[in-house]
Design a protein around this nucleic acid. Structure first.
Length: 633
RNA sequence: GCCCACGUAGCUCAGGCGGUAGAGCACAUUCUUGGUAAGAAUGAGGUCAUGGGUUCAAGUCCCAUCGUGGGCUCCA
């Protein structure tokens, strides 16, 4: 992820931040904004709705696209001068872009909705008509965006328009038979958003209305409930409720403050991560946070990535930059010595905090920030070793995800873009080893043709969370560029100098972002092994506090993270609070427990296990921690 | 960055057409000592994001700035 580096300076003036620059920018394929490509189809329906729709994708798409037309019809009635952009079907719904004389308000959505219902009840027929280019130009004479689309269509393309009622749209179709196939109670307009015409920030900003449409009322309700669930799990909300992290306007946006409880989770995951890396043959590095411009000139960052970097600071007349990536620092360490093929492969990892200038409008909670800690590593090896190394990284990554409770993973294999460094043979070998690794692990993958960085091909892993949403997290990238630029070498068995292969990889991506996904995946109910507080002791009355404290000390000594609620609240209130804090275990202690030297165990699932000895409880909890159980309590 | 919306107590939010602020939760104190999701009373808390402007008078209207949120190539 974060390794996706400088991009080809393809169109430096108009679109300086083209694709590939920030892999993670587009990684959330949410309910209504992403995922047109066919490869997304199979995961687009969220859990809640799975099975709810018996319609094929194709039929649903027709329905959604037709809904877009009906909405456009309603907008036309309200704004006779409206100019129309495009209105496609998308995952779970549709949108349409309009150029309108004034800004839309939520009240407008109600009106538009009402008009749509009227149109649906009128059962207007969708009529397809093939027209000549001339006719089309005439029909859409006052529709500049449609005319632009027309002009771009290849000369031999069949041009069709669809009409229903008074509305006519340039459209390939297909559509449902008539508007009555939509149901007045099965669609909803969700939001208004700005959207550049054709996604180009140099072109006019249109107003986009997003809507969702379903086959019936029940499906719509299920979808709306799903959206509510997404909101309930929003990491910004849960982060505040559970006191995990914060950001501060006064202190700079996009910078994350980890509170004690968030810090605990991070500490546990980092410890686990380090342990795994040591076992996996990695060495851990620590490198500086800033570096002189020489470093970034040499690496090429100043040529290709400067916009993503914070401006330089002047130190004794020298420019220093906050690091946006760790790789040049690792290379500096590599180059401190003459390297032999005998010491390769080197696997060097670092939890390296980097800083990137993100435009203000794209910052988003933990998911898009300006200061982030990558779980970065660089593997430096000989061409002979590359295949094993890639397979090793892939397995390593999958195991890590498994241990963290994510099982549903797929991959994208990005191949050589038009302009690229490195010769064809290198690309072919690199790509071959990536592909082989994916096939060896039997991971479903799609080829992202030409989607590689200019400096090398890559594998990106996408992780599906508990709500069926897809997140791009892991990236494994070849780099044919930096070894060259920094003149990295090793001495081969032949006594000659050779250029090593270098692979960048980030598995969790960035700890901040990973934390955000983790929070949403578990909805704040973290597994026992990394729950910030595992046990809350709940003495019923003050006279039970001494025994509770004793129990607490035993649990603490056994390695559990505990809290004691010795407030003056009633037991019910204490339970409620522990429940809301999503603490796995509530140990209720009253007269009976003191008498029998037991604890009463209540789970955050509302399940009550009844009284058991402290030893029995410890055994249960420690077992789950040791196994890193992700769902059992 | 751009479009739109928003910024009122720690949190979630009320505050017609301008007349110097209110609730619930949280917090503090006191009472209550309880058996599996909220016991009660009292109290403290706000330069209404910041800076300008209009006005006799500005959370309220205007402008700017900062921040937050929804979006910004699913292709007729």
């Amino acid at each position: 992820m974060a390794l996706a580096k400088w991009v080809e300076p393809r169109e430096p003036t108009s679109r300086p931040r083209a694709r590939g620059l920030f892999v993670w920018a587009r990684s959330y394929r949410g309910s209504h904004n992403k995922g047109a490509k066919p490869r997304d189809r199979r995961i687009k329906i969220t859990q809640v709705n799975q099975g709810a729709s018996k319609m094929s994708d194709h039929e649903m798409e027709k329905l959604r696209h037709s809904a877009a037309h009906v909405m456009a019809e309603a907008v036309l009635k309200l704004f006779p001068d409206a100019k129309f952009g495009i209105g496609p079907a998308i995952d779970n719904g549709f949108y349409y872009d309009f150029d309108l004389p004034r800004a839309l308000s939520p009240e407008d959505l109600e009106q538009i909705s009402e008009r749509m219902k009227a149109s649906i009840q009128a059962k207007k027929t969708f009529e397809r008509e093939v027209v000549s280019r001339q006719e089309a130009m005439q029909i859409f004479g006052d529709q500049p965006y449609k005319l632009e689309l027309l002009q771009e269509m290849p000369p031999d393309e069949t041009i069709s328009v669809y009409r229903h009622g008074e509305f006519v749209d340039l459209c390939r179709g297909p559509h449902v038979e008539h508007t009555g196939e939509l149901r007045w109670d099965s669609f909803a307009l969700l939001s208004i958003a700005g959207a550049y015409w054709r996604g180009d920030e140099n072109r006019p900003m249109l107003q986009r209305i997003y809507g969702t449409v379903w086959r019936n009322k029940q499906e719509l309700r299920a979808h709306l409930e799903h959206l509510e669930e997404v909101q309930r799990r929003d990491h910004r909300r849960v982060g505040r409720e559970l006191d995990l992290f914060s950001t501060h306007e006064e202190a700079g946006p996009g910078l994350i403050y980890w509170h004690p409880k968030g810090g605990r989770i991070r500490e546990i995951i980092e410890d686990f991560w380090r342990k795994r890396h040591r076992e996996g043959g990695y060495e851990l590095l620590y490198t500086p946070h800033i570096g002189r411009s020489w470093l970034w000139e040499t690496s090429g960052h100043l040529d290709f990535f400067q916009e993503g970097m914070f401006p330089p600071m002047d130190v004794d007349g020298q420019d220093y930059y906050l690091k946006p990536m760790n790789c040049p620092f690792h290379i500096m360490i590599y180059n401190t010595d003459v390297r032999s093929y005998r010491e390769l492969p080197l696997r060097w990892a670092e939890l390296g905090t980097v800083y990137r200038y993100e435009r203000s409008g794209v910052l988003h909670g933990l998911l898009r920030v300006r200061g982030l800690t990558q779980d970065d590593a660089h593997i430096i090896c000989t061409p002979d070793q590359i295949e094993d190394e890639i397979l090793g990284v892939l397995r390593f990554s999958l195991q890590l995800w498994h241990d963290l409770g994510f099982e549903d993973i797929q991959a994208y294999l990005a191949t050589r873009p038009e302009k690229a460094v490195g010769d064809d043979a290198m690309w072919e070998q690199a790509l071959g080893s990536l592909r082989k690794a994916l096939e060896a692990e039997e991971i479903p993958y799609e080829i992202d043709e030409g989607g590689g960085a200019f400096y090398g091909p890559k594998i990106d892993l996408k992780i599906n969370d508990a709500l069926g949403r897809e997140w791009q997290m892991t990236t494994i990238q070849f780099d044919f560029n930096e070894p060259e630029r920094f003149d990295m070498t090793y001495t081969g068995a032949d006594g000659q100098e050779h250029r090593p292969y270098m692979v960048h990889r980030a598995l969790l991506g960035a700890l901040e972002r990973f934390f955000g996904v983790l929070i949403e995946h578990y909805g704040g109910a973290f597994p026992v092994w990394f729950a910030p507080v595992q046990v809350r002791l709940i003495p019923i009355a003050d006279r039970h506090a001494a025994y509770a404290k004793q129990v607490g000390e035993r649990l603490r000594a056994a390695g559990l993270r505990i809290e004691m609620d010795d407030s003056s609240n009633r037991m019910n209130a204490k339970i409620r609070e522990a429940q809301l804090a999503k603490i796995p275990y509530m140990l209720v202690i009253g007269d009976r427990e003191v008498e029998d030297e037991t604890v009463s165990v209540r789970l955050r699932t509302n399940e009550n296990l009844g009284a058991m000895s402290v030893d029995a409880f410890l055994e249960r909890a420690n077992d789950l921690v040791a196994r890193r159980a992700n769902h059992e309590l």
